Computed example of a mutant assay.
Amino acid sequence: MNSRKNVTLWLGIGIVSALLLLMAVSLFYVPYGANEMNIAHRLQAPGRAHWFGTDNFGRDILSRIMEGTQTAFAVGFFSVCIGAAGGFAVGSAAGYLGKWTDELLMRAVDALMAFPGILLALIFVTIFKASLPQTVIAIGVIFIPGFARVIRGGFLQYKEADFVKAARGLGAGHGTVIFRHIVPHVLSSVIVTASLCFSTAILAEAALSYLGLGVQPPDPSWGRMLNESQSYMNKAPWFALAPGLFITATVLGFNLLGDGIRDLRDRRA
């Protein structure tokens, strides 16, 4: 089946592309300063002056949503990078070396997976100062077991393949075998995992910020905006609606993208 008929994939690409465009625009232009307060216009309903309305400090919600995309994508990108790097180190060593190395590393992964991911993140940001870097590291660490399992499975599948045995027979070293012959075949699974983890990272950051343990005010964060809006649900429902919709759209977009890539890979397998 042609990839153009993969509705899931193209829906995901469309949503993610629109959000990336919004983030790119926010780097150069926002209608108002994200932290620019105007008490006279607090809790103003959506209109021509403020398309998404204003919050309890009179700040433009659209401007804060736009700058919030920078936070969301930064957390998603760097936490996935941390998870993928740690997962590659653990998974490749376990899958390629096998034996006691595999047993030791995977038991450590199992122990880490025994704790709920959000609980580990909460413990981490509670022990250390709650800030954006700590949030990124905490979320990245909880991704390591998932990446490690995916990468280990790929190495176990391909390390005894005929083309790998042929490469070894021709004198290829471990580095060449790993990075030239095994990693390219594992990469598609890693990309799918990264896409799904990206959406989880954004959701986790929103949850931590909602609890006051993520991005600290006055920096805009969709989760923090939800926290600030809960006291005004009846009076100003638009205050919570905008960040809620953007969190939903972002998570949906990356989940659709990951599912679409996985379906495309399975058809080509």
Rank of each mutant, 00 (worst) to 15 (best):
Y210Q: 10
S231R: 14
A161I: 00
V215N: 05
F198Q: 01
L213H: 02
G169R: 03
P220Y: 02
H181W: 05
V186Y: 01
F147Q: 08
D162Q: 13
A201S: 14
L170T: 04
G223P: 09
V150H: 06
A194Q: 06
A161T: 00
P145T: 09
R152I: 12
D219Q: 14
A166F: 09
N227V: 04
R168V: 12
A166M: 08
R224W: 13
S231M: 15
G146V: 08
P220A: 09
P220G: 07
N234K: 12
M225W: 00
D219P: 00
I191V: 15
G175Y: 07
V186A: 03
L156G: 11
I202L: 12
R168M: 12
A206L: 05
G223Y: 10
F179N: 11
T193P: 03
L196P: 08
V192T: 03
L211N: 01
G212N: 10
V186D: 02
I144L: 08
R149D: 03
I178D: 01
A201W: 04
S209D: 09
Y210M: 02
G223D: 11
D219T: 15
K165P: 03
P220W: 02
V183W: 14
I202R: 01
F143T: 06
P184N: 06
F198W: 06
S195A: 15
V177L: 06
G153C: 03
A166E: 10
P220K: 00
F143I: 04
A161E: 02
H174G: 13
R224T: 06
H174F: 03
H185M: 08
L156C: 06
S199P: 11
I191E: 02
G212H: 09
R224V: 06
L170N: 14
Y210V: 05
V186F: 00
L170S: 14
C197T: 08
L203F: 15
S221K: 04
G154I: 07
I182G: 08
F155P: 09
Y210R: 01
G171S: 06
V164K: 00
A167K: 00
A166P: 06
L187W: 07
A172S: 10
L196G: 14
Q230H: 10
V150W: 03
